[in-house]
């Protein structure tokens, strides 16, 4: 039996970092900020989590520090795209590249190693019922984000800011404030995603260990149309693909092929949904 509870469990584990990052991306998207810096923010989270946990001996301090560090890192996007009106895509790409270089460099200076740092005494996150507390947190975050976005005053204002910033501004709602808020929240969520990856899924730091999960989160935001539940479903699809990849590896397929599984699913999903969307948005009348 290929689809069994083991596969589901490993899919749910693979899901957590993608889901956390994608929720952050969805909130940015709703505020009108296209955030493709998720990958870089997540990687900063991984490194900070491992370093802090190693020096303090506490995985929880690692989680906290990861959230703070990634939020601080996200300020690059906030200042660059919102205050200085730079291009969010260029900034996001730069943040992703910078994070790889920066963490690699720090790995060498702090730990004196290259490639990977791991040590049996590095404190990881505890498991409760098979999952880390961050996994449960990510599920709760879906519900909280859904309610906040659709029902809370903040969510309404945020959606308004994302859709028509000058309309929001004339009503006294500061687009700058809401965009900063959204970007910082995405920073915190990506930091948690990084902590989950480096202290939960495994207990180590490897250069570029996010390995495209941030990009997949970006795609999950698009597929899920920036709605928390939609993003959950999209992220679940990728989690399943990743888990299935591992399983296929066990069946003797080459690793290079199985590692590609989530990306193949990404491409397929993108094709399918854009084709569907295209058909639906055929010109039907001139909107004024």
């Amino acid at each position: 039996m290929f689809l069994d509870s083991d596969l589901l469990l490993s899919a749910l584990r693979a899901l957590t970092p993608i889901l956390l990052a994608a929720l952050g991306g969805a909130i940015c998207e709703r505020a009108g900020v296209f955030n493709i810096g998720l990958e870089g923010m997540m990687l900063m989270g991984c490194f900070t989590a491992v370093t802090t946990s190693w020096f303090t001996g506490s995985a929880w301090l690692g989680v906290l520090a990861a959230a703070l560090a990634a939020a601080a890192y996200s300020l690059i996007l906030a200042v660059g795209a919102v205050t200085l009106r730079g291009d969010a895509v260029v900034l996001g790409v730069a943040m992703n590249l910078l994070a790889v270089g920066l963490t690699g460099f720090l790995l060498r200076t702090v730990f004196g190693v290259q490639g990977t740092f791991d040590d049996p005494s590095l404190a990881g996150l505890p498991l409760v019922g098979g999952f880390t507390p961050l996994t449960y947190l990510s599920w709760a975050a879906v519900g909280v984000a859904a309610v906040l976005l659709s029902r809370h005053v903040w969510g309404l204002r945020l959606r308004g800011v994302g859709e028509a910033p000058d309309a929001a501004a004339t009503l006294g709602v500061s687009p700058v404030g809401y965009k900063y808020g959204a970007i910082l929240v995405s920073g915190v969520l990506c930091g948690l995603a990084g902590a989950q990856l480096a202290l939960g899924n495994v207990t180590l730091f490897t250069e570029n260990m996010t390995a495209g999960r941030g990009w997949i989160a970006v795609v999950a935001v698009m597929l899920g149309r920036a709605a928390p539940v939609g993003v959950l479903l999209a992220a679940l699809l990728f989690g399943l693909a990743e888990a299935a990849g591992f399983r296929l590896q066990g069946l003797g397929l080459p690793q290079q092929a199985t590692d590609a599984a989530p990306y193949v699913v990404t491409l397929g999903a993108l094709f399918l949904t854009t084709a569907r969307r295209r058909r639906r948005t055929r010109p039907s009348g001139a909107a004024t």
Binding site: L156, R157, G160, E163, D166, T170, L171, V173, A287
Partner: peptide, 17 residues
């Protein structure tokens, strides 16, 4: 200065909900 994807009620009460 309206939000096209929001409902009439949401547009009316926006920022004074």
């Amino acid at each position: 200065k309206l939000f096209g994807s929001l409902s009439v009620a949401e547009n009316v009460v926006y920022a004074a909900e």
